[in-house]
């Protein structure tokens, strides 16, 4: 990979981190501006960027309610993303969807499901469409993102079986952060309880399953590239388990209107009192880790890395300001878009 590409990857990771920190800070700096539930990708930046860096023109993806990082990497205007999270008319989805339901079909991001696992069959259908198109066009693949919890959904297994049977060009990317909200994987997954990687579930569907360090963007890139190549060749899907550590709580506090929302401590501390686990994860934070790696390899110098960070900060400051200034949609607009 050339240096420009490496620097591009690092830049996207920093942009995601800065964006997510702005979302988190909004709860303190602009109380009441974000409603409902947000879910942050901090800690998963390397996995997201490593995966999306494999994309070629025409490739598509679907994701979950933890979805801010994908459009940021794809080049969607962060102003529009923030405005959506603030419920404004200039939002990416006009204020209809909010944080959990981003979509930017023009960039190949077809959307998300707010319900665990339910986007997987949809992405599989996108893969079916791609397979048909691939017969007459340069082959494209579909990246399907979901969490470890979704692998206990029937929809996950039904989708993998069909994709394997029909050799659909899909890469199933499980971002395994080891928590279903506050429940640890070994409490709810027979494989995790047995100390096995969750990629072994691919065996049930006669497809390759691999586990990769989701904190290493280059490792993720290599693994997803191989899976995407396989899919592009028409050899069918792969299950990639990307092991990440979510650095924030599952989402902001769940409370009825009137109660100030904020992010509580990570569940490792709040529920299990395990500060050591969380601090170890912080020491392995993929963003500074990749920065250090690129500096050591001479790809970046400190000044350039700082410039990238500064540019991301300025971009996200502008996104927050844009979103705050954007008007709310007209109430009557609520009944638009119910039917095509």
């Amino acid at each position: 990979m050339d240096n420009d590409r490496l620097i591009w990857m690092y830049t996207q990771m920093v942009r995601i981190r800065e964006f997510e920190e702005r979302v988190k800070r909004t709860f303190d700096e602009h109380p009441g501006v974000i409603r409902g539930h947000t879910h942050l990708a901090d800690g998963a930046e390397a996995s997201i960027v490593g995966s999306l860096a494999t994309m070629q023109p025409g490739d598509q993806l679907m994701a979950t309610y933890r979805c801010h990082g994908y459009p940021i990497t794809l080049g969607t205007d962060t102003k529009a993303i923030m405005a959506e999270i603030y419920g404004r008319t200039d939002g990416l989805c006009g204020g209809y969807g909010g944080s959990m339901h981003l979509a930017d079909p023009g960039r190949g991001f077809l959307g998300t499901s707010g319900i665990v696992g339910q986007g997987i069959p949809q992405a599989t259908g996108v893969g079916y469409a791609a397979q048909i198109r691939n017969r007459t066009q340069p082959p494209t693949v579909v990246l399907c993102f979901f969490g470890d919890g979704a692998s206990k959904q029937g929809a996950f297994h039904e989708s993998l079986n069909l994709a394997s049977l029909w050799k659909l060009p899909v890469v199933y990317i499980m971002e395994n952060n080891n928590y279903n909200v506050a429940t640890r994987s070994e409490q709810e997954d027979a494989n995790a309880a047995a100390g096995e990687p969750l990629s072994v579930k691919a065996k049930a569907h006669s497809m390759p399953g691999v586990t990769v360090d989701g904190g290493d963007p280059l490792a993720v890139h290599a693994t997803v590239s191989e899976a995407a190549d396989r899919a592009r060749r028409g050899d069918g899907p792969t299950l990639v388990e990307s092991k990440v550590y979510r650095l924030s709580a599952h989402g902001n506090l769940i409370a009825p209107p009137g109660v100030p929302l904020h992010y509580e401590e990570h569940e490792a501390i709040r529920v299990f009192g395990n500060r050591d686990e969380y601090e170890a994860a912080l020491r392995g934070d993929p963003v500074p880790r990749f920065r250090m790696q690129l500096i050591e390899q001479g790809v970046l110098d400190v000044a350039r890395a700082d410039e990238i960070a500064q540019a991301a900060r300025e971009e996200m400051d502008a996104a927050v300001q844009f979103a705050l200034d954007s008007p709310f949609p007209a109430p009557e607009a609520a009944t638009n878009f119910v039917y095509a």
């Binding site: 079986n161 394997s164 049977l165 494989n191 096995e196 072994v200 579930k201 691919a202 065996k203 049930a204 569907h205 006669s206 497809m207």
Partner: peptide, 12 residues
């Protein structure tokens, strides 16, 4: 399905 036997489906 591509999985030959049902027993293989629970192999994980």
């Amino acid at each position: 399905t591509t999985v030959a036997s049902v027993a293989d489906v629970v192999s994980p």
